[in-house]
Simulated assay, not measured.
Amino acid sequence: MDDRQTKVTVEFLGEQYPIKGDAEAERITRVAVWLNDRMKKIAQSNSRLSSRQIAIMTAMNLADDYLKLEADYRALMEMVKQQAR
């Protein structure tokens, strides 16, 4: 296993951020581009939001998406268990 961390500089809402992680640089960059796109959509919906508010709203939206997917996954797993009986 490779213990080296990848270092990449990414951009969120026009600001540069150095990121270190275990993933490949390409993966980190792809995630950052996707997240920046989500943040831009929220920023465009209300130009009065600060960068911090945009980040919080984006996090809230992502958490909501995650919890919905988690519930869907649990329901699907329950259906699979029911069919296996």
Rank of each mutant, 00 (worst) to 15 (best):
A25Y: 01
L62H: 04
A55M: 10
V80E: 08
I28K: 01
Y73G: 01
Q53A: 12
R48H: 14
L13S: 06
Q16T: 14
A43P: 05
A43Q: 11
E15W: 04
K81N: 08
R52G: 06
Q16S: 15
Y66C: 00
R27P: 00
I19V: 15
A59D: 00
K81R: 14
E70Y: 09
D72N: 11
Q83H: 09
M1N: 12
R30K: 15
P18Q: 08
I28R: 00
P18T: 07
A23H: 05
M60S: 08
R48T: 14
N36E: 02
V31D: 10
Y17V: 12
V33A: 00
Q16H: 15
P18V: 08
V33G: 00
G14V: 13
T58P: 09
T9H: 13
N61G: 07
E11P: 01
V31L: 10
T9L: 10
R48K: 15
E70N: 14
L67M: 13
R48E: 14
E24M: 05
I54V: 15
T9W: 09
Q82M: 10
R48I: 12
T6R: 12
R38D: 01
R27G: 00
R38I: 04
K40E: 09
I19Q: 10
A71H: 04
V31S: 10
N36Q: 01
D65T: 06
N36R: 03
L69D: 14
I28Y: 05
T6A: 08
L13F: 07
T6S: 15
K68G: 02
T9D: 14
K20Y: 13
P18L: 09
W34D: 09
A55L: 04
